[in-house]
Amino acid sequence: MSGSLSGRQRLERALAIVPWIASRGGTASIDEVCRRFDIDVEQLQSCLDTVSMVGVYPYTPDALLEVFMEPDHITVNLPEYFTRPLRLTPTQTFGLIAAGRALLALPDADPQGALARAIAKIENSTGVGSAVEIDIDPVPPEVREVLGAAIEAHQRIEIDHYNYNRDIWSTRMVDPWRIQAADGHWYLEGHCHQAADLRRFRIDRIGSVRVLDETFDPPAELPEFTAFAADHSLPTVTLDLAPAAAWVATQYPAEAIERLGDGTVRVTLAVSAPAWLERLLLRVGDDASIVEIDDSLRGTRAAAARRVLQHYLH
C-alpha cells in the first residue's frame, strides 16, 4: 500500500500496531511492523507522529502516548488503557470461525493442526464453544481424485451430468480448469465443448467421469470466481407469494421484489429452464398465484401437474 491513508485506515492500524509493539516489551523493528500491518515507512512515520500527540486532558507530556521512531526500530511507552488491541467485531469473529470451520470440514483437514487449535481458542474466547458448524457437500474422494488429477495434468474429460433445471442427463466433453465450492456445493469449472463456453457442473450431479487421451491448454488467467450472473434475456414470471412461500423471494435471484400490504410478496423471477419453473410452481402450490407469465411459459403449472398425475391414474 502506498500514498496516504484515510482516517479510518490509520485508526484501524494504530489500534493494532501500538498495542502489538507494547506486547513485544515496547520495542519492535520497523521492517517487521511494515510487513505485518501492510504499511510503508512514510505512512508509519506519519501515523506514529500523530499518535505521539494523542493523550488525555490536560495534554501535558506525562498525559500523552510516548512513541519514538528510531532509524530501524520503534519504542512505545503507553498508558495501560492502550496496551491491548481492540476486540474483534461479531462479524469478524463469525468470518474467522466460518472460514476455519469450512476448511476443517474437508476430508483431508488435520483435526489437531494449527487451524483447528486457532479456531478452538477463538470459539472458547467467545463463549460459544463449537456452536458453528459448516457442512459443504461431501464430494466422493474418488471423484475428487479423478477430477483433481485431470485438472493437474490438463487432461480432457467426458462426464455424464444431470442438469437439474432442465431435468435431463447429458454427456459433455470438458477441459477441466478447477474445482470450487459455492452455495454449499462443489462445482467443476471448465470449458465445455458442447456449449463452446465456460460451464460449471455441480460435482454431486456428475454420474461418471472418463479421462480422455487428449490434453488441453488451460487459459492463462482463470475467470473471476463470481456468483451466477443475471441473464436479462430470459422470460419472466411474476408471482404473488403468501407468507408461507415468501422464501422463494430470497432463495432465487429476483428481478423485482415488492411487499404488498397484507404480507404478500410479489416477486418477478427469470426462468432459465421450464423444468425449474415446473418444480417451483408445484412446490409452492396454492401459496403462490401467477400474476404475469411470459407467453412461452403459459400453461407450465397445469401441464406439470397433469404429467405428475399420470402416475396416479393407472
Binding site: 484501524e12 493494532a16 469473529t93
Partner: peptide, 13 residues
C-alpha cells in the same frame, strides 16, 4: 474485515 481481524490478532510476519 479479514485483514482488520488479523491485525487485531497481531498479524502475520
Amino acid at each position: 474485515e479479514s485483514t482488520a481481524a488479523l491485525w487485531r490478532l497481531g498479524g502475520v510476519d
